[in-house]
């Protein structure tokens, strides 16, 4: 059976079940309320807490005359007991972020890019993480602890 024919059959199945066993009235609203309440309980809905920038330094690389000169940055942020060290390096037309979280604990780190895309990694047992291949632009890092603490974010910075 061709892909198109298969997709047509499946769309018939969808339309039949949509007619015959439709989503109950109010189900979506009830689920939105339940999800929102769970998110509120975990502090997702509060103003997200900002990490503090402690240090920033840069060194110039790529001094070849035909290449745009781009810097390697190191940034250090803190929030409560969490210390976050970042190294942002050029990688072709994009950037690569290497990070180190002290003390190491299960945390998901996401790059939230100004263009709407996100990139994620989980920090390793030693507290390291790497997020390669991030497009240039303005980004924030969002740290999501795997326990019940609410996420927190860095201020925006340019990569």
């Amino acid at each position: 059976m061709s892909e198109m024919s298969r997709e047509l059959m499946l769309s018939v199945v969808r339309s039949v079940y949509d007619d015959r066993d439709p989503v109950p009235d109010g189900l979506v609203t009830r689920m939105q309320a339940a999800a929102r309440e769970a998110a509120d309980d975990l502090g997702f809905s509060l103003e997200v807490e900002l990490m503090t920038l402690l240090e920033r330094s840069s060194e110039l690389v790529g001094t070849r005359s035909d290449a745009a000169t781009r810097a390697v940055y190191t940034l250090r942020f803190v929030h409560g007991q969490v210390d976050l060290l970042l190294r942002v390096a050029p990688e072709g037309e994009r950037s690569r972020i290497d990070g180190w979280v002290v003390p190491p604990e299960p945390i998901t780190v996401r790059v939230v890019h100004d263009d709407g895309s996100t990139f994620a990694a989980i920090i390793s047992d030693t507290g390291r993480f790497e997020i390669p291949d991030v497009p240039l632009g303005l980004v924030r890092l969002r740290l999501e602890p795997h326990d019940d603490r609410a996420p927190f974010v860095t201020p925006s910075f340019e990569i």
Binding site: Q32, V112, T118, V153
Partner: peptide
């Protein structure tokens, strides 16, 4: 993505998009 970027109403959008699918799969 929008929820992660800090838009709380995006969670409503996600629930609105996926709840009908979950209904049919679960049923």
């Amino acid at each position: 993505d929008r929820w992660i970027a800090g838009d709380p109403s995006a969670l409503d959008d996600l629930v609105r998009a996926m709840t009908p699918v979950l209904w049919h799969v679960v049923r």
